[in-house]
Design a protein around this nucleic acid. Structure first.
Length: 300
DNA sequence: AGTCCACCTACATC
DNA sequence: AGATGTAGGTGGA
């Protein structure tokens, strides 16, 4: 395909940002590094991102740089002031340690549809496999975009619900989704039919939005909470996976048999609107082996 | 209502 | 080497 011309801009940042940690934090699965640039898709546009002193350098297929800045600001949740959040949570020692370890780790505001499919694919899976599954979905049923010159792999817009519903469970199974193919196809059909209006869930309170998601096949408590936290502006959502569960056991005295709902609502009572951020920090910190200090800096 | 288990599949470990 | 276990769960018995 012919190169699309990429606009280039610079977005000054007041907020800390660790792009590498954030894009690898299990919230998103389709960003790829080429040298110092991270390449991915936001909505209908391809983006290359590079963190520089004082801000974010970006390249984009978006028609206007202003539109790109708006899209990036929303995606990175730059309205969330990490410094203030960190202060508000400083009283909690394990959380403070986790935040000190990855100061620029941010919650993201992704596209709810891709986010929903991502986590419907995550059951009994792992990050490399989820990435492969989503990449296959995008390459097979999505639409190609511009990107880095001569880039391989190319960038693809994620297929809309109608397209995946049409593909059906058989088509999706061929891409290696396994038993998740039924989940994704069923969820795609429900969303395509209008039974669940994902964007409208942003306007609902957490319990109502969660209830709507739980009607979808392949969407249980954990998947619903991930979608709510990572794409639907519900910062109080607290997804509990193995790593977070381990953290709650290790640092807060919860038993290994504690039920999901017990842990999740305990976390919401404790951390309130910041529960989602806490979850993300505890998750990354646990996966990182509970090491202290700032990443990339030699101790002492 | 709480508990157990099958489900695809790649990869690691036994 | 082939068996067994596990990986960011869900749904059904």
């Amino acid at each position: 395909m012919a190169d699309e011309r990429l606009g280039e801009g610079f977005l000054p940042l007041e907020e800390p940002l660790d792009l590498e940690a954030t894009l690898a934090s299990g919230q998103v699965f389709r960003w790829r590094w080429r040298g110092r640039w991270a390449w991915g898709v936001l909505g209908e546009h391809g983006y290359g991102l590079r963190h520089e002193e004082g801000g974010l350098r970006f390249r984009t297929t978006a028609p206007s740089l202003a539109a790109a800045e708006t899209e990036l600001t929303a995606f990175l949740r730059l309205e969330d002031k990490l410094g203030a959040i960190r202060e508000a949570l400083a009283w909690d020692r394990p959380v403070a340690r986790a935040m000190a370890r990855l100061p620029g780790l941010r919650l993201l505001r992704q596209d709810p549809w891709e986010c929903l499919v991502s986590f419907a694919c995550s059951s009994a899976s792992n990050i490399p496999r989820i990435s492969r599954n989503l990449e296959a979905l995008a390459e097979t049923y999505g639409w190609g975009l511009g990107g880095p010159r001569g880039a391989s792999p190319r960038l693809y817009r994620f297929p809309d619900p109608g397209r995946l519903a049409e593909a059906g469970p058989e088509g999706l199974r061929r891409l290696g989704l396994g038993f998740r193919a039924e989940y994704v196809a069923g969820t795609a059909a429900a969303v395509a039919s209008g039974a669940v209006d994902l964007l409208a869930l942003r306007g609902l309170a957490y319990p109502e939005a969660r209830g709507a998601l739980l009607t979808l096949p392949g969407v249980g408590e954990k998947v619903a909470d991930c979608v709510l936290a990572f794409s639907l502006d519900k910062r109080e959502a607290f997804p509990v996976d193995r790593w977070v569960r381990r953290s709650l056991e290790a640092w807060y005295g919860h038993g290994p048999r504690a039920r999901y709902g017990e842990l999740s609502s305990w976390a919401q009572d404790r951390w309130g609107e910041y529960a989602g951020y806490v979850q993300q920090y505890l998750f990354c910190w646990a996966r990182d082996g509970w090491r202290d200090g700032q990443r990339g800096r030699k101790p002492g």
